[in-house]
Each structure stands twice: as C-alpha cells, then as structure tokens.
Simulated assay, not measured.
Amino acid sequence: MNNERQQQILEMLEQKGEVQLQQLKDFFPEVSVMTLRRDLISLENEGYLIRTHGGAVSAKKVAAITGEEDEYSRRAAEHIEAKLKIAEKAVPLVERGRSIYFDAGSTIMCLAKLIPDESFSIVTSGANIALELLKKQNCTVITLGGHVNPNTLSVSGPNAVSYLDSINIDIAFMSASGLSPESGLTVSNVYECEVKKKVVRRAKKVVILLDSRKINKNMTFTYANLEDIDVLVCERPLPADIKAEAEKYGVRILD
C-alpha cells in the first residue's frame, strides 16, 4: 500500500463495505478526483477492493456475498506485482489509430486497467477484459463470440475462430500458460489454442506478456514459437537460453 490516504480509504471500506468517489472527495477536499481514482485503482490491483461505477466495494464484502472465490479470481490475485510490472512496460506499445487485440488472462487485464482513456479500437477474447475496457469513455471494444471458459473468462470455439477471419489486427497482446525453447508458447485448452493460433497468424505484430513463473513450463498445446512473435515482455531478466533463442529470431525483449 502506497500511503496513509489509501489506508484511510481501506478503513472506510472496512466500516461501510463500499464507498463513493464523491464521499472520498468530501473526506479529502485537498485531493483531486483523479488522484483518488488512482488510489482506488492501486487498491484494486492489490486485491483490496473492486471498483464500481462511481466508487468501490470491499473485496471482503463481495466474497461474503458470493461465497468462495472463483478460480479466475484466485489466479488473478497471484503474483500481482509481477503482472503490474509487465503491464506497465507494455502500455507504451498500445498505439492509437491501430487495430488492437487483447487476449484473455490476468496480466492482460492489468494492461487493460492501465492504458489511458484514449480512442483505442480493441478486439478481445476476454469477457471480463471487455467490461473493464468499457469503463473508459473513449475506447471502442469488440468481443469475439463463442463459448466462455469459466476458469479463464476467455471466449473460444469455432465462431470465435471464424470471426477472426473478418478483422484486421495490427498489434496483438497475448498471454500464455508456458514458454520453453522446445515447445514454444503453450496453453492447456485446445479451443483457446486455436483462437490464439489464428490471432498470431493475422496480427502484423505480436506482443507476449509473460510472468517469469511460466518460463520453462510446458502445457499441452502450442500456439506459437519464438520466431512467430515480435516482442516479449517479462518482469525480470530472462534465462540465458530463452533470451538467446529469442534474440536469434529478432524478438525485442522488455525485461
């Protein structure tokens, strides 16, 4: 947690369960709405709250209402610091005036939260990522149609793959469950693999967001190899063998 003000916001949430942005502005009259909104974003990224339209709800209150956390929520809360570092490095790569694709996944979600509210045009396979992007007033959002995986909240299946044939993708921001020199970028779901394969084939530029826990890890299905991508973003320096293999194919490394 960054400061005393954020601690006070948490204490308010602890007492009331939820808080409105206007209430925070009244409580902190010397602080701008933009700064208070950044406080809420920071606290949400740390897992303390969930932002709503005009305010926030305590994560504890949501858990009490819904019961045990779902699988996606548990995974999203893991290694959040690494995911945020990766997303921060990737933000400058999100260009206006381009057709952009956001894959599903919790690291991509961090990127969706961090990009500025500007006139981006974004296609996504993440149902929750689409909802996050819609919080921004100036962002145009398109979702793929198909089956929603309850564990990843990603959309896949024949309809999703077919729809990708009808769109152009300048820059694709992709996730993976594993990366190794021998197997490339891998995932565990065959239907999601097919969607990712199609995106990589159609995109002019492919950016992989990958936290270091997934390096030298193999899942069942390969959707791309290092020669298929353009940029690899990680929160820490890559192992020597991965770095050498990536550099062999001219992959730009941000670590």
Rank of each mutant, 00 (worst) to 15 (best):
residue 244 A to L: 09
residue 197 K to L: 07
residue 182 E to Y: 12
residue 35 T to D: 06
residue 171 I to W: 02
residue 152 T to M: 02
residue 107 T to L: 00
residue 203 A to T: 09
residue 64 A to N: 14
residue 201 R to N: 14
residue 125 S to T: 03
residue 115 I to V: 06
residue 103 D to V: 01
residue 182 E to F: 12
residue 196 K to I: 02
residue 128 N to R: 12
residue 130 A to K: 01
residue 240 A to N: 15
residue 132 E to C: 02
residue 107 T to W: 00
residue 43 L to V: 03
residue 119 S to R: 15
residue 102 F to E: 02
residue 38 R to M: 09
residue 197 K to A: 05
residue 77 A to G: 12
residue 184 G to W: 05
residue 198 K to I: 01
residue 149 N to Q: 10
residue 129 I to R: 01
residue 154 S to H: 02
residue 97 G to V: 03
residue 20 Q to K: 15
residue 118 E to S: 13
residue 47 G to R: 08
residue 244 A to E: 09
residue 227 E to I: 15
residue 177 S to T: 11
residue 17 G to P: 11
residue 59 A to T: 08
residue 79 H to G: 08
residue 95 E to K: 10
residue 67 G to S: 10
residue 172 A to L: 00
residue 49 L to P: 01
residue 135 K to G: 14
residue 20 Q to D: 15
residue 238 L to D: 02
residue 133 L to V: 04
residue 57 V to A: 11
residue 144 L to A: 01
residue 140 T to W: 13
residue 176 A to V: 08
residue 120 F to T: 00
residue 6 Q to Y: 07
residue 122 I to V: 10
residue 81 E to K: 14
residue 219 M to C: 15
residue 192 E to H: 09
residue 165 D to M: 09
residue 186 T to K: 04
residue 203 A to Y: 06
residue 99 S to D: 12
residue 199 V to E: 02
residue 241 D to Q: 11
residue 63 A to M: 14
residue 191 Y to S: 07
residue 13 L to S: 00
residue 161 V to R: 04
residue 139 C to T: 10
residue 193 C to T: 07
residue 198 K to Q: 03
residue 45 N to V: 15
residue 146 G to V: 01
residue 2 N to R: 14
residue 127 A to L: 12
residue 7 Q to P: 14
residue 114 L to W: 07
residue 199 V to Q: 02
residue 219 M to W: 13
residue 91 V to S: 03
residue 215 I to Y: 09
residue 87 A to Y: 01
residue 102 F to L: 06
residue 80 I to C: 14
residue 73 S to G: 10
residue 41 I to A: 07
residue 60 K to C: 13
residue 52 T to E: 07
residue 194 E to F: 04
residue 30 E to L: 12
residue 95 E to F: 07
residue 72 Y to P: 04
residue 70 D to W: 09
residue 228 D to F: 04
